[in-house]
Design a protein around this nucleic acid. Structure first.
Lengths: 358, 358
DNA sequence: ATGAAAGCGCTAACAA
DNA sequence: TTGTTAGCGCTTTCAT
């Protein structure tokens, strides 16, 4: 034990084993050791064996940071995310993390508020860590931020948000089409006073869902009965719901499309427990995302599924392709939109019940 | 633009600005630049200003990895986590991430399954990244794994799991006391056939909650009416619920304590929608955690709150103290247990209704 | 196939 | 206060 005394006085001896130590004990050069741990390198089976044996004995593992420094690849992906209350994000993070882990990458997580300044601050910090790529989950990247990332040679994918900026790659579901599907379904099932509760109006997902929804309604000669804003948070959604039923059922909607499931739960709670309105008998509710809770019996929510698996796969593809091709960040990003099905459950009534609103 | 041509042929010119570049332009030494960006270093206001100005112009930011290499501090914390479906974890992660971020640390996330082998694999990978500390959220760290971490000088805190191993620091709520509180409450409110649905039996939280619960019951001369195992997952909890009501209400419990909220939701869903059993009129349900959904009107679940804020604060304290004190990992860890209140809501009946089980 | 040597970008003595 | 000088642990030419 005493032989391990570190040179810096006599404090502790935490034997950080380096490639050098292994090399010495194995009787080879340090570069030989490096090559043994470098996938496609040229080493004889003999040295490989020898080195591996010694390395095992000494508990040696290559230092990722040192490797990152010299190779320029940290095998870390920065994930920027704002809000984990909405179940959609934990689910996505879990899948993203697993997918990237399988490829030897790991996620460095950065929480941020939605304020512009905070985001840019966070992105700077991310870049400091020399991440190989960035996933911006539901946060808006300003153009200058994208510039900074491009300048640093770090590809960015926007997850569950798109942007006009054509240089930004993004992965979303077909939000416009999803909105259409819901409108069609509600009209087919005989709803005549169809309302919408919007998410945060700065979000592309919100805009696209609403556009598809409203335009489909109008194309069929039906216009939106009323509209509220929930900003993707429960409290605002509740407020919007109360406003819609302010005069009881008389001029209230007979169907509400809520811009995401998370708010839809709050809407249903308010309807049933606070206002005493029956779902779906008196009003149908539709959400968006198909988060796990949407299928829980207490809500049994009709919704459009966001296919997280495929969204994650697309994100992985885009990012890895850009990372692995040595090319400069192409000025053109990919905009991937993935179609998701309407999942019909019990929060919407199925039949046409004209005037049947006891 | 042409002046930026990189030496390596004529591919791209991604001008990675280094401290050297800044130094050159500012007419100072590279170490001067370093000092400007090192909190407690000695630099004259004059050079500081000059350097800062040039750095700004060139868009220079210190490379965290290089800094980590030489300083031995990466300012990254490895977070190992297994399961994000349970809302408790996203909430905890969000708070942990924010708390550490404020202190200049960031979380490197590693998802893992609960299998022993997978965990050790993941921990090795974490260590490769030279993290300054590890948070194990609801994953069991074997003794040899702890050894490895200790050997690497990396402190570990177990979050929401404790362990007999005294060398491991852990942060949990007062699970035993929580179990007691629930037993007392259920007895006070006149329940006489009290059941328990367990979590995964390998978890300390599960064991402690059950022990407190059952022992309190027994101390009052009441024994557990029946018991099922839900393993902390919804499907198993549903199965356990069905088993308990297999013969209708005759020999069924009049109260169920479910080891966490996540399972309690599944239990309530099964009870109400599948078995047609009324909550709380026919059976009271209690959970544990007080995750956001527990307060949603659809569940309105009586539960014991795990004080995440304080648990996170404790985790931060323990980890930072160990990181910042240069001491060798003390063989003794801290076991912090934080008390949480019983939150009484509508999933339990309040009054004694002997025999009133219509 | 292997070793020697040159850094990656930075911090931390050590002088001056 | 400042510049000079060593490295941190590794990958990667370049010789051999």
């Amino acid at each position: 034990m005493t032989k391990g005394l570190s040179k810096s006085s006599m404090v502790v001896s935490l034997p950080k084993i380096t490639a050098n130590d292994v090399a010495a004990r194995a009787g080879v050069s340090q570069s030989a050791v490096s090559r043994v741990f470098t996938p496609g390198a040229s080493v004889s089976d003999h040295t490989k064996e020898k080195v591996l044996k010694v390395a095992m004995e000494m508990g040696y593992r290559p230092n990722s940071l040192a490797r990152a420094m010299v190779s320029g690849k940290s095998r870390m992906i920065g994930l920027v995310v704002a809000y984990l209350q909405n179940q959609f994000y934990p689910e996505a993070i879990e899948k993203l993390s697993n997918a990237f882990q399988e490829k030897g990458y790991h996620l460095l997580v950065f929480m941020t508020s939605k304020t512009e300044g905070d985001i840019s601050h966070v992105v700077e910090e991310i870049l400091d860590y020399q991440v190989d790529g960035i996933i911006a989950a539901s946060v808006a990247m300003s153009s200058d931020l994208l510039q900074r990332c491009a300048a640093a040679g770090v590809p960015v994918v926007s997850f569950n948000r798109s942007q006009d900026d054509e240089s930004l790659s993004s992965v979303t579901s077909e939000n416009y089409a999803g909105g259409c599907k819901i409108a069609e379904f509600l009209m087919q099932t005989g709803h005549e006073r169809i309302a919408y509760i919007a998410g945060w109006e700065g979000a592309s997902t919100q805009r696209d869902r609403e556009a598809g929804f409203v335009e489909t309604l109008e194309k069929a000669g039906q216009s939106l009965w009323c509209r509220g804003v929930g900003n993707f948070v429960m409290d605002d959604a509740k407020q919007a719901t109360r406003a819609m039923f302010h005069n009881g059922l008389d001029d209230a909607p007979d169907a509400i499309f809520v811009a995401n499931d998370h708010m839809a739960f709050a809407v249903m709670d308010t309807l049933r427990s606070e206002l005493g309105v029956k779902v779906p008998e008196q009003v149908s509710v539709v959400g968006y995302d198909d988060v796990p809770a949407a299928s829980w019996a207490a809500y049994d929510l009709t919704t459009v599924r966001q296919p997280t698996n495929r969204m994650v796969a697309a994100t992985l593809d885009i990012l890895l392709e850009q990372i692995e091709s040595e090319n400069l960040p192409t000025a053109r990003g990919q905009q991937v939109k993935i179609d998701g099905p309407l999942i019909i459950r019990g929060s919407t009534r199925q039949k046409h019940h004209k005037g049947c609103r006891t």
